[in-house]
């Protein structure tokens, strides 16, 4: 039990519950199932991307190109729609094509980081520029709206199972799948291992370059899926719609307890981080706080959370008494 309480995830959960309690007083709407589903559905894209980013941050890297990659895939989807017949097979096909497009871009990032050994922040900064530039060039910044979408896709986008929007299932599948990979497969454990100590991983025969390649490739695949979710949710493709989202993604992961220096992070923690950001935003709308103040609160919470985390880490290090001093 004590172990459990020490986990970061628990303290995030506590904060979420606290905010939730306050909000349910402020607005009766907050505690309704409808509101919750809205909150979650509205953050499926953020959630999927944050889950992918978790793996990258566990290996102590970072990817600032995620939003651009997702946009690029979304734009590709938008153009594909003109060629795809109106049938459920098209939707299925989409779930094959979009992840593959994302995968290719993720692989480029991964190869540059692992083989060419360029720091991840620089690589992804570069690919961000390149991808965003190409997207803007091709689309000229114009919307693709739902009129050109096949009906089958619109049906998919509006589909609800047991009263729950399909996109939420999509997030759940990604979350469970990634959790499984991280917890129960060799590659997943290798991700945690190289984040914990790269040198040790070399010595026990883990090919850390392959693992790095994997996390970026996986991020690409998830960006592809997120692109479908984004297109389904907004029912349009907006080349500028996800500008700067990468930083929110990183913020969610960090709030979720992942350590930017590697070795620590979990899918459920990240989901809590996403939830925290989402509830705050939702709550401020419900509490009729001027939308302009929302960023102030979000920013302050990020700064406070990372500071608090660091202070408690330092304390725990100090407490690990190095020497048993004779009384």
């Amino acid at each position: 039990m004590k172990e459990l309480l020490k986990q970061k995830e628990i303290s995030i959960l506590a904060i979420i519950l606290l905010i939730g309690a306050v909000l349910s007083f402020v607005s009766p709407v907050f505690l309704t199932i409808g509101n919750f589903l809205d909150i979650i559905e509205g953050n499926v894209v953020l959630g999927i991307l944050a889950i992918g980013m978790t793996l990258i941050i566990i290996t102590s890297d970072i990817d600032v190109s995620v939003a651009a990659v997702t946009t690029a895939v979304a734009v590709s989807i938008g153009y594909l729609f003109t060629y795809l017949p109106d049938s459920w097979i098209s939707v299925l096909l989409l779930f094959l094509i979009a992840p593959v497009i994302g995968l290719v871009m993720g692989l480029v990032n991964g190869l540059l980081v692992s083989i060419i050994e360029i720091p991840a922040i620089v690589v992804t900064l570069g690919t961000l520029n390149i991808i965003a530039g190409i997207v803007l060039y091709i689309t000229n910044g114009n919307y693709i709206n739902s009129t050109s979408f096949p009906k089958s896709f619109m049906e998919f986008a509006n589909y609800e199972l047991l009263g729950i929007p399909i996109l939420i299932y999509l997030l759940a599948i990604v979350a469970i799948g990634t959790w499984y990979i991280l917890k129960h497969t060799l590659i997943g454990r290798s991700v945690l291992a190289i984040g914990g100590n790269t040198q040790s991983s070399v010595r026990v025969g883990i090919d850390y370059k392959k693992v790095k390649l994997f996390v970026f490739a996986y991020m690409g695949v998830l960006a592809g899926i997120a692109a479908i979710a984004q297109t389904a949710y907004t029912k349009a493709v907006d080349p500028n719609g996800m500008l700067g989202l990468e930083l929110t993604v990183i913020a969610a992961v960090v709030l979720g307890g992942a350590n930017i220096h590697g070795g620590r992070g979990s899918v459920h923690g990240t989901l809590l981080g996403v939830l925290l950001l989402a509830i705050m935003q939702n709550g401020m709308i419900l509490a009729r706080i001027d939308t302009y103040w929302q960023n102030v609160v979000t920013g302050a919470i990020i700064v406070i959370a990372v500071s608090y985390d660091h202070i408690s880490y330092k304390r725990s290090q100090d407490k690990l008494a190095k020497i048993e001093v004779e009384a």
Partner: peptide, 12 residues
Amino acid sequence: GQDSNKKPWKKI
């Protein structure tokens, strides 16, 4: 390290 020459998708 005991599995390090196994397939990456091997179940732990």
